[in-house]
């Protein structure tokens, strides 16, 4: 097996890169730990997106976050898509490459959401093989993100944390811990988010995501949180984040704000909030456990 490339992001707050902010970033050079891009948005042949990303990658560490590989799909991974990811990794040398524990491709077409899967021996086998294939094809260690979900599967037999930990153990991948997803899933499934966090294998975590959720109720009138990425990080998620950093030490932390994108200064203020938490935990962490 080939050695995988796995540099790590600085233990700072980073921001999702949005086209409406290219000019702000390139002219003001704000002090931001890193920028994260959705890989699929940079899979065009050329033009302004690549020009901006090339300029920003010269000045900041880049995190490449895929949303379309469909690692949890029953069907084989799309070789063409793997090649596109490899090309981006070779071109921009990101400091992190991550994807979701979810699926999105089907005969019906690309379903454009991160869809949930049952946790079973069969899916564990399938997802581990897909993660391994993605790492071999890209030459890069992958961070696998814990999902947010609205439903459960009768067929599930494995706890989510055990499932993620087993995939990391088998494939050598790292984990991306989305604190908002932990809150969303915990509320939606009547679990304690702090208990989840205290069991999470933090030594495998290479990056944290923070985002804002929306709230509604389900058919029985119970609270239902929606992973919306369209607002500031909610107070309860931020409190859970403080708890997480206190437990595991500083970790590169992304502010995800993909819908109703705010002005750059507002986004930067969110990053500063996370940076202040990271500063309190400085010096308390070793780099993520590396693959032997």
């Amino acid at each position: 097996m080939k050695a995988l490339h796995n540099p790590h992001l600085p233990w700072r707050a980073g921001l999702g890169l949005k086209p409406e902010h290219y000019a702000d970033i390139l002219s003001a050079r704000p002090d931001v730990g890193f920028f994260e891009v959705h890989a699929e948005n940079y899979m065009g042949d050329g033009g302004a997106p690549h020009r901006a990303l090339a300029a920003i990658a010269e000045r900041y560490p880049i995190s490449l976050h895929g949303i379309g590989l469909s690692i949890g799909a029953a069907r084989p991974l799309d070789r063409q898509h793997l090649a596109r990811l490899r090309a981006l990794i070779d071109r921009y040398r990101p400091h992190s490459f991550s994807e979701h524990l979810a699926w999105s491709t089907h005969d019906a077409g690309f379903l454009n959401d991160v869809l949930p899967l049952p946790y079973t021996a069969e899916t564990l086998e399938r997802v581990s093989a897909h993660v391994d294939e993605a790492q071999q094809a890209t030459g890069c260690q992958l961070l696998l993100e814990n999902p947010s979900s609205y439903v459960l599967f009768d067929d599930s037999t494995i706890d989510e944390i055990d499932f993620l930990d087993a995939i990391a153990e088998r494939s050598g991948c790292g984990l991306l811990l989305d604190v908002n997803n932990v809150m969303v899933s915990a509320v939606n499934h009547g679990l304690d988010p702090y208990a989840y966090m205290d069991r999470f294998p933090v030594e495998r975590v290479g990056e944290i995501h923070l985002a804002g959720y929306d709230e509604t109720v389900d058919g029985a009138g119970e609270r239902l949180l929606i992973d919306a990425h369209g607002s500031k990080v909610r107070d309860d998620v931020f409190a859970l984040y403080r708890h997480t950093i206190a437990r595991c030490g500083p970790v590169a932390t992304l502010i995800e704000w993909d819908n109703d994108v705010p002005t750059f200064p507002l986004l930067l203020a969110e990053a500063r909030r996370a940076d202040s938490v990271l500063a309190t935990a400085a010096g308390r962490r070793e780099p993520m456990r590396r693959r032997a």
Binding site: L111, N112, D113, L115, P118, Y150, V151, L152, F153, D154, D155, N188, H189, G190, L191, V217, D218, G219, A220, E222, L224, I226
Partner: peptide
Amino acid sequence: GITTARGKPDEKRFAVYRNNVAVGL
């Protein structure tokens, strides 16, 4: 086979996925 913590399926919850796909596209 899709359920909730209550042990009963809930159409409104599944509809979140339908809505995500429709809104995203």
